[in-house]
């Protein structure tokens, strides 16, 4: 379970947000939405301590990740998989090696076992044929899928997706959404999805957190979202390409 309590973050004089509190139950998928620059990705990076808050705490299964020493933090981070907005694949190695990367360093598996695991992970995202390709040869959607295979190869307890469908065509976006749902269901992963793609939100999320005016402005289930009369949230939702029936 992830508990975010009274989080506050500023960069210099710029307040990103304050008093952000929310709980994410095990197995739940929460979408963090909001306008560009509202601090969605910044909030996500606080969950696995890539960023340190000015105030507040983040508890992972009751443990404050920001009070751990570096060795404990790294151990905790191994329980997370992260899909970055730009995929963040290592461009000096090929697709297979990218997915095998965490296995080589964090497990004692043999080469044969690694090969089996990597090919299984690539098959899950439909890219077993591309295992030899260099990352520069992959399209945007393929890169996201390889990054997803790499992020889930160690069977994490938590997954964080930063704008998983940005820059992708609607069909590929839909494929990525299906994969996120598939990961949640098959691996029973607790997920945080940062996005402003409402189509993606409605498809993959159980709950929605809306960041607006430097605070968590609204938090509720997708069903509650459909019936909300929250003015700023309605404006955000109806401005979406996918008109949501409210």
């Amino acid at each position: 379970m992830i508990e975010i309590k009274n989080l506050k973050k500023s960069f210099g004089n710029l307040l990103v947000w304050q008093d952000v509190s929310l709980n994410i139950d095990n197995g739940e998928t929460v979408a963090i939405i909001g306008r560009s620059g509202c601090g969605k990705s910044v909030l996500m990076k606080h969950i696995n301590a890539l960023l340190i808050p000015d105030e507040g705490e983040v508890l992972i299964d009751g443990e404050n990740i920001h009070q751990m020493d570096y060795v404990q933090t790294r151990k905790m981070r191994q329980r997370f998989g992260v899909l970055f907005q730009g995929s963040a694949l290592f461009d000096s190695i090929n697709t297979f090696e990218n997915v095998a990367f965490p296995l080589r360093y964090f497990t004692n598996r043999s080469e044969d076992e690694i090969r089996i695991d990597v090919m299984e992970a690539l098959e899950l995202v439909g890219l077993e044929e591309a295992w030899e390709k260099q990352t520069s040869e992959l399209s945007g959607g393929m890169r996201k899928r390889v990054a997803l295979a790499r992020a889930t190869i160690l069977k994490p307890d938590y997954m964080m997706y930063d704008e998983p469908t940005s820059g992708l065509d609607p069909e590929t976006s839909d494929e990525i959404n299906q994969l996120i749902m598939q990961m949640s269901e098959q691996l029973k992963i607790t997920s945080v999805v940062v996005t402003h793609d409402m189509h993606s939100v409605l498809e993959v999320a159980d709950s929605v957190a809306f960041l607006d005016q430097a605070r968590l402005s609204w938090f509720g289930t997708v069903e509650e979202l459909r019936q909300t009369d929250h003015e700023a949230l309605l404006r955000f939702v109806t401005a979406s390409e996918y008109q949501v029936k409210v």
């Binding site: 990076k45 696995n48 890539l50 907005q85 730009g86 963040a88 964090f106």
Partner: peptide, 11 residues
Amino acid sequence: SEQIDALESMG
């Protein structure tokens, strides 16, 4: 390109 963040986030 967030590759360093990716390394850190893997532990």
